[in-house]
Design a protein around this nucleic acid. Structure first.
Lengths: 151, 151
DNA sequence: TATTGTTATACTCTATAACTATA
DNA sequence: TATAGTTATAGAGTATAACAATA
């Protein structure tokens, strides 16, 4: 095969990969959202709550960096979680510009109950691959993602 | 390893897979969006235009099925593409409930020019994997996606 | 009755800018 | 001056449901 044909093959393959990747994640996301919706939370709210639950209290700014949201959006999400009494704001005594988001008792109890179920659900959603296949895919996805990010 | 530990491993691995998949696609999407943005189109508009460009005129309803959008969203997207003179609506004479979306001369000329560049860009974005690795990943993603979809 | 497409409406998220309080 | 966070505002994009026209 000459260079030009090889180039076209690789273009088609890359396009295919992009489409299949998008479709697969859409299917998975849909199931994961169903799993979360019954808690009265949307995926962003769940992601923020889960971050605080597993990593402990976080400055508002840091949350935005980790779940990839603009700071005004985080204010909005934290407002909603605060209204639901799942987390609260706590001023930082050392730097009074900073506000921490802290999980509440109710938030902890909710996550204690639902997080194990959530992990179980994701395991079932991802059961199309076995353990070894998952390990390979994780590594390959990292390679793919790092390259794209580094462009 | 006993069953319970194996279960926990598989849960963690699945969660990891979900996170890595999400992150990788985010990085790729970001690059692809950059590639499209300079055309004055967003990814959805580009997807609809590309569908009509490569598959020919389509009933509005069919477009929604293929790009996975609700019919009201398609109305919105087609409105925008029509305002940009990239496609137009054409009534179906045989079934007057149906409206086709048809690509215009300007739409065809635009795609003739940018679609080859777009494929080349995606090839570069996906260059973190070689041809064989891409083939494997496409197959694995299909398995993963089909399983999730079938739940 | 069922289907196609539109309209009306609401929600989530983003971006921007102005602002307060603090460093 | 710079940073953390909030407020206000506007806009993109999507989903839902109700609707009109047609089959």
């Amino acid at each position: 095969m000459d260079h030009q044909n090889n180039d076209i093959l690789e273009e088609e393959l890359s396009l295919k990969l992009f489409v299949v990747l998008t479709r697969a994640l859409e299917s998975i996301k849909k199931r994961v959202e169903e799993d979360i919706k019954c808690l009265g939370l949307n995926p962003t709210e769940f992601a923020v709550l889960e971050l605080i639950y597993s990593k402990g209290e976080q400055p508002i700014q840091k949350i935005g960096e980790k779940v990839l949201l603009a700071s005004s959006s985080i204010t909005y999400v934290v407002d909603k979680l605060e209204k639901k009494d799942l987390l609260r704001r706590k001023p930082c005594p050392k730097d009074r510009r900073i506000t921490f988001a802290v999980i509440t008792q109710a938030g902890t109890e909710l996550m204690d109950e639902v997080f194990p179920k959530h992990k179980q659900a994701i395991k079932e959603i991802c059961a199309g691959l076995d353990v070894d296949e998952k390990k390979v895919m994780i590594n390959q996805l990292k390679k793919l993602g790092y390259h794209a990010q580094g462009l």
